[in-house]
């Protein structure tokens, strides 16, 4: 078994309203100068028979929506 991490982020041109809200909340705890973009982090326990092509396919077909999100697949 291998561990694979898929990180999914809103595309740069997509307005990330959740990240903006987090950024604003940071100022309320006295921290300024930080801009947050919010995404998703998936940890996959992957059978050795699953190849990289399959991993990229599941990332693009299900874990991320290519219309609004970018993703990276990393074996760790």
């Amino acid at each position: 078994m291998a561990r694979v991490v898929v990180d999914v982020m809103p595309k740069p041109e997509i307005l990330d309203v959740q990240g903006q809200a987090v950024s604003r909340a940071l100022t309320r705890i006295g921290v300024s100068g930080i801009e947050v973009r919010q995404g998703k982090h998936f940890e996959l326990e992957v059978d050795d028979s699953v190849d990289d092509e399959t991993l990229h396919r599941i990332a693009g077909d299900l874990l991320a929506n290519p219309v609004i999100e970018d993703w990276t697949v990393t074996r760790v």
Binding site: L15, V17, Q18, N65, V67, I68
Partner: peptide, 17 residues
């Protein structure tokens, strides 16, 4: 329908949340 690929685009969080 957008997620199924029957319609283009996507629906995201409302601008003001």
């Amino acid at each position: 329908l957008c997620e199924a690929g029957l319609l283009p685009g996507a629906l995201t969080r409302n601008e003001k949340l």
